[in-house]
């Protein structure tokens, strides 16, 4: 019932180096595009995690990897697979990641905010926020933190 050899051939197998075969089915040619786009999303997300200036801005590329990148790559693999059980397992893994990864990101940001970490703002933006001051606004609280830090300098 389960054909084992056809999943060793096709363009995805050739791209990922697993025994390049002869015949590529149409579904493999359809599924190769989400895998490549998802790889691009994961790579740029990794660059964003490495290079963004702030914790709260680094959350965004990490969430992109967790939600969009894994959905594209695992969805592309699930389209390209000819075994329905493998596609079902890939859909299960993708849905589990799609639920748990934003939950853990939310818990992480909530813990960071409660511990007192505040987002990084440009000084001009902080001044603009401070002029129209509203109490208990988190952006205003962060701006006051930054301006107080600026006043410490000579």
């Amino acid at each position: 019932m389960t054909p084992s050899t056809p999943s060793f051939s096709g363009p995805i197998a050739e791209l990922t180096g697993f025994e390049p075969g002869a015949v590529a089915t149409a579904l493999e040619w359809i599924g190769i595009a989400p895998v490549l786009v998802g790889t691009f999303v994961v790579f740029t997300g990794a660059l964003g995690v490495a290079r963004f200036p702030d914790f709260y801005s680094r959350v965004h590329p990490a969430g992109m990897i967790d939600a969009l990148g894994q959905l594209l790559i695992l969805g592309g693999l699930g389209i390209a697979s000819d075994d329905p059980w493998i596609a079902l397992k890939l859909a299960l893994i993708s849905s589990v990641l799609f639920i748990t990864a934003p939950t853990s990101t939310h818990a992480l940001v909530r813990a960071a905010w409660r511990e007192g970490l505040r987002p990084w703002l440009k000084p001009g933006d902080a001044q603009g926020v401070l002029e129209k001051d509203t109490d208990h606004n988190p952006v205003t609280a962060s701006a006051s933190w930054l301006v107080a830090k600026k006043e410490d300098r000579p």
Binding site: V49, R58, I65, G69, I93, L108
Partner: peptide
Amino acid sequence: YDRILAVNSAGTCAVILVC
């Protein structure tokens, strides 16, 4: 929190690789 975020993202990448 940066370290936890990075390790979480690396774990997601590891899941994709294992898949």
